[in-house]
Design a protein around this nucleic acid. Structure first.
Lengths: 152, 152
DNA sequence: CATAGTCAGTTGCGATCGCAACCGTCAAGC
DNA sequence: GCTTGACGGTTGCGATCGCAACTGACTATG
């Protein structure tokens, strides 16, 4: 008779681990009145100086466009992001951080990176490196990493 | 100026990977009219022959009790699980698979394991082993693994 | 017993999410 | 310059989730 220890089942483990990581960061997001999808937008825009389209954020973060749309709405309401009309293609909406949005990004980023480091601090350097390598392999296999996305 | 490549941010990567894994299994769950939380209950009960309480499933799967409660309701409606009154403590509700539930478990399990193997097939044996090791380290660090849960 | 605190499980509620339908815009074919 | 199809972005809707409040049952104290 087949038996499964759920605790060894990879989808379950990943799901649970991802939830724990997310929860560990929730307080930092909440400090600025945002959540995960808003952070993804912020992080994507914060990487660049020039405005990017909402669709670019969608492709770059691999997040559903409705989620990005609502996150942008929230960020705009908070005054962290501005929506600009695109001259080239009036369907596109270009997004850019406001000065306040840039401030928030600069303030939030180190908090999140520190939290990430804390979570990963139980791993040896070799393990951390191996994890990065393994995740990259999985991401490539699942086609989650494309040069198009990385290059922007 | 601080910059972050979101694609290298561990919480983001784990979240995305977990979602992809879950989506890859969704079709298998759907074949039997269930979803992830229902599967967790099924898997937990399927591991044992004797009935277990709902609370045991909660502790074992580290899933919120409301989610388990609803999953059990769904499984009961499908005729996969029976709720039994506990003689010892009438607050507790003992759960056991029906014969049909056992059938479904036995049928679903190999499908899910095969899917898991496919997803992990891009990794070398050494990588797969390292991943298991690393996840276990993280789980222990986050107190996600306790002997109480494993021993049942 | 009587009371208070704890525990197992359920449920109402607000928030979130993904899908699909939709709107306005662009591009290709004729 | 129409028509058709594709694309960027928004939104309505149904489903799901976690929290917190609740019910009923156990337990410890006096």
């Amino acid at each position: 008779m087949n038996r499964l220890d759920l605790l060894g089942f990879m989808p379950f483990r990943l799901n649970r681990l991802a939830t724990e990581f997310s929860n560990a960061l929730a307080a930092d997001y909440a400090r600025f009145g945002i959540d995960i999808p808003e952070w993804r937008v912020l992080a994507t825009l914060g990487m660049h100086d020039a405005p990017r389209s909402a669709n670019y954020v969608v492709r770059c973060t691999r997040t559903h466009k409705s989620r990005i749309s609502r996150a942008v709405g929230q960020l705009a309401a908070l005054g962290f992001v501005e929506r600009l009309e695109s001259g080239d293609d009036r369907r596109e909406i270009m997004l850019q951080l406001t000065p306040r949005g840039r401030e928030v990004y600069e303030e939030l980023l180190p908090l999140l990176l520190a939290r990430e480091q804390t979570l990963l601090s139980c791993l040896s350097p070799a393990q951390a490196s191996a994890l990065d390598d393994i995740l990259l392999t999985l991401e490539r296999s699942l086609d989650l990493v494309s040069h198009k996305n990385r290059a922007g």
